[in-house]
């Protein structure tokens, strides 16, 4: 292997790593705020990619029906959780947030899709369809058991992943899709051939990370989310409701996941179940960051991406094995820092 191949591998790796980093951030965000290890973040990647692919084909994506279904599930979840304090106004709010909004989105999308709007509109529409699902999933699945242990939440999370993968197969079929690049520009820098798509991925990732930074560091709502992560009891005592933080965390995770799918879909063919593996790599990065540290998780994502890229060059068949086994030495190191006698929960 010479330097130029190495550089290409690094470029590939970093491009993929950007997407893993996004997912890792979403996982850290959701975990710190709600204690949910959001395994189905990968499904949002699939949904984002396949929704965009449908728009490119001038079709109404299957996610529109899914959005309506999840909206209803969200309504049921809210009715159940808030059953003790329901009022007329509350019912109206719930109806608007979980039934009317998805219906409007569905109407908009159904009207626009056949017209093949410009790519940027397609991307925005895809986000509009997929991102709210995060909130509905929180309302229907996680909020009713918000006080359960991390382990129960994890099992539920995995169960949700299974259900969503099944639904993805129903709504998108087994066919894979690949979308057109966000930018088909390209240029060479020394011996390195740089694609516009790589730059678009990196650029958008950096913009999103910056936006998240501003949100968490400058806005009171962002700080409220951080406060919930730091001290759940303290947050409640100042009047930050866990549902409020949870909803925002899941909405952000939905947006990030969908965006990850939109960014990755020109790079590789996405099937209904591809998101899981992509999500798991984000997950490896998040775990390396201890599920709490954003910078560590982002750094680990780069490590995962580059290792994956080199592994696929040297031993392409064992690529996945190598990537997932990165976790073992990391966990080993962590385990030696762990106090064994501490009682869990």
């Amino acid at each position: 292997m010479d330097l130029s191949i190495g550089l290409i591998l690094i470029q590939d790796g970093v491009t993929n790593a950007a997407i893993y980093a996004l997912l890792a951030l979403a996982l850290v965000l959701v975990f710190t705020v709600t204690r949910v290890i959001f395994v189905p973040v990968g499904e949002f990647v699939s949904f984002g990619a396949l929704t965009l692919a449908a728009f490119e084909a001038g079709k109404v994506p299957g996610t529109v029906s899914l959005l309506l279904v999840l909206g209803i599930a969200g309504a049921l979840g809210r009715l159940w959780t808030e059953r003790q304090s329901l009022s007329g106004r509350m019912l109206a709010t719930i109806a608007v947030e979980t039934i009317v909004v998805p219906a409007l989105i569905a109407a908009l999308v159904t009207w626009l899709a056949p017209h093949k709007p410009p790519q940027i509109v397609q991307v925005l529409l895809a986000l509009l369809v997929v991102a709210p699902m995060g909130v509905y999933v929180y309302e229907s699945v996680f909020r009713p058991i918000a006080e359960a242990s991390v382990l129960v939440l994890l099992i539920v999370s995995v169960a949700l992943h299974i259900a969503l993968v099944g639904l993805a197969l129903v709504f998108f079929g087994a066919e894979g899709s690949r979308t057109t690049a966000l930018s088909d520009a390209s240029f060479t820098l020394g011996s390195l051939f740089i694609t516009g798509q790589s730059l678009a991925v990196l650029g958008l990732t950096l913009v999103l990370i910056l936006a998240l930074y501003v949100f968490f560091d400058r806005t009171l709502i962002g700080k409220a989310l951080r406060a919930t992560a730091v001290n759940r009891v303290g947050a409640r005592l100042v009047g930050i409701s866990p549902a409020f933080s949870g909803r925002i965390a899941f909405a952000l995770a939905g947006i990030i996941g969908a965006l990850g799918g939109i960014l990755v879909s020109p790079l590789t063919t996405i099937y209904y179940d591809t998101g899981f593996i992509i999500g798991l790599k984000g997950f490896v990065a998040a775990i390396i960051g201890g599920l709490v540290s954003y910078p560590l998780a982002a750094g680990a994502a780069i490590l995962v991406g580059v290792i994956e890229s080199f592994a696929s060059f040297w031993a392409s068949e064992l690529k996945e094995v190598i990537v997932f086994m990165i976790i073992v030495p990391i966990l080993l190191v962590r385990s030696y820092g762990t106090q064994v006698l501490e009682d869990e929960e």
Partner: peptide, 10 residues
């Protein structure tokens, strides 16, 4: 030796 959720994840 991992605590809580790290184990199932592993």
């Amino acid at each position: 030796r991992l605590k809580g959720h790290y184990l199932p994840v592993a």
